[in-house]
């Protein structure tokens, strides 16, 4: 991360605005991740409402994954800021690679507020939820 990249057109500096946060897969760290999310979102021209949507989106995605994370492993969150908005990929190692259920309040909140949402499992049973919150234009609801 560079200070200069705080300018609206981060891409113009040629720096890829990408941040990875790795922390214990424990709900005690959720508030830290929400703060990091808000701080990174503020680097883009997100409105305060959109930043709140991102905070709740990242929180719900993590809470879902934490319920199936292998004990003693990490929760990894990759943020990528680009011209369209922010892409956040949250992942944990699981026992069975089961994808989060979509008929829950948590998924409802996630998909309603956090933009495009998808989930996939890798060959090592790492389960990832990806949010893509667009700046302006593409409004949910």
């Amino acid at each position: 991360m560079t200070e200069e990249a705080a300018a609206p057109t981060a891409g113009a500096t040629g720096v890829r605005d990408a941040v990875t946060v790795r922390m214990p897969a424990d709900s005690a760290y959720l508030s830290v991740l929400r703060t990091a999310t808000a701080g990174l979102a503020a680097r883009l021209d997100f409105t305060l409402d959109e930043i709140e949507d991102l905070r709740i989106g990242v929180d719900e995605a993590c809470a879902m994954l934490l319920s199936q994370a292998l004990p003693g492993t990490d929760l990894t969150t990759e943020f990528e800021l680009n011209g369209n908005g922010m892409r956040v990929a949250v992942s944990v190692l699981t026992a069975d690679g089961r994808l989060p259920a979509r008929d829950t309040f948590a998924w409802t909140v996630l998909s309603a507020l956090a933009g495009d949402v998808n989930a996939h499992a890798g060959p090592d049973d790492r389960v990832t939820i990806v949010l893509h919150k667009h700046r302006d234009g593409v409004e949910s609801a």
Binding site: S31, R34, R55, I56, D59, E60, A63, T104, F105, V109
Partner: peptide, 9 residues
Amino acid sequence: TFCDVAGLA
């Protein structure tokens, strides 16, 4: 200042 679905539950 913040409440998620776990809190609503």
